[in-house]
Design a protein around this nucleic acid. Structure first.
Lengths: 164, 164
DNA sequence: ACTGAAAATCTACGCTC
DNA sequence: GAGCGTAGATTTTCAGT
């Protein structure tokens, strides 16, 4: 089972290449995109729109340097939630996702229930965040913090598995 | 200490607003961007270019639905590296970052040394990845896998801390 | 930082296969 | 139905101020 989108409308080679190129540079002009694909601009435009309509392309975002935002210190915070219920998880998740320090929230299975990726100005701010924003919440059982030395994201995501 | 960029060239309110808007929609036309900021398009264009030149804007990327790529199953994999040396960490990090299953790699302090964020077609593929790509490596001491039920990313990152 | 004008691009639409 | 070419509208871009 590989996602319902693949059923509604399979992505052909042209779509895949568009997705690849726009992951690398979302500001490529439609004209340039068409040139690289070897198709007419009008064709390319329609493809890109269809991909957005189908939800394959979810948006276009500028990638900002965290240092420049004064947030050079990053950490992963793993935490347990109790009681572990849908309601409590959802509430905490919503709350933490809204905190400015938080880049992303993972709801996970296993020893931990939530993992937060946070970015703050310095270690003092990290400490304050942990003590004042997390420790105080009674639904949070305990947490473990790992400071991040380095973070590498892969630039282009390709389709994986069963090639239709 | 809030990042060297802030020293080289402080970001003013206009820059901050550009960064905010382009994080939300990287495909905003320069014209529209200028309109929302209340400045001339030429001014806006120069600001955007300067932000890219300074490295504040690191790039523009299309956000692709993982389901559509046939990668609906995500997990966090925490692992220990041994012997824990710069050389070994760097090599493993480079290797795993190149694996198609891996979305991102965190080098961390604490109980674990590396945390991988992976996305695969299904649980079988996840299992195979763990056994065939990770278990076999002698430098990897052990690992713990947490399947991800939900992942929320914050859409716009703001500057934090000491407002100059 | 703005104005204006030339060059490039976007995109709607009718056409062909 | 999918892709193409054209033409009119829009945008980008760079002088000069």
């Amino acid at each position: 089972m590989a996602g319902i989108e693949a059923i509604i409308r399979p992505m052909d080679e042209l779509d895949a290449e568009i997705v690849r190129l726009l992951q690398t540079d979302a500001r490529l002009s439609n004209r340039e995109l068409a040139r690289r694909l070897g198709v007419a601009p009008s064709t390319c435009l329609e493809r890109v729109r269809a991909l957005a309509r189908r939800g394959v392309i979810r948006g276009y975002h500028a990638d900002i340097d965290l240092q420049a935002l004064g947030r050079g210190v990053q950490a992963l915070v793993s935490l347990q939630v109790r009681p572990l219920s849908r309601t409590v998880i959802d509430r905490i998740q919503g709350d933490v996702a809204g905190m400015p320090e938080v880049l992303s929230v993972f709801v996970v299975a296993g020893g931990d229930d939530l993992v937060l990726h946070v970015a703050v100005p310095d270690l003092d701010h990290l400490h304050a965040f942990l003590l004042e924003r997390l420790s105080r919440r009674p639904e949070i059982g305990g947490f473990r913090t790992s400071v991040i030395f380095q973070h590498v994201r892969s630039t282009v995501l390709e389709r994986l598995g069963d090639p239709a």
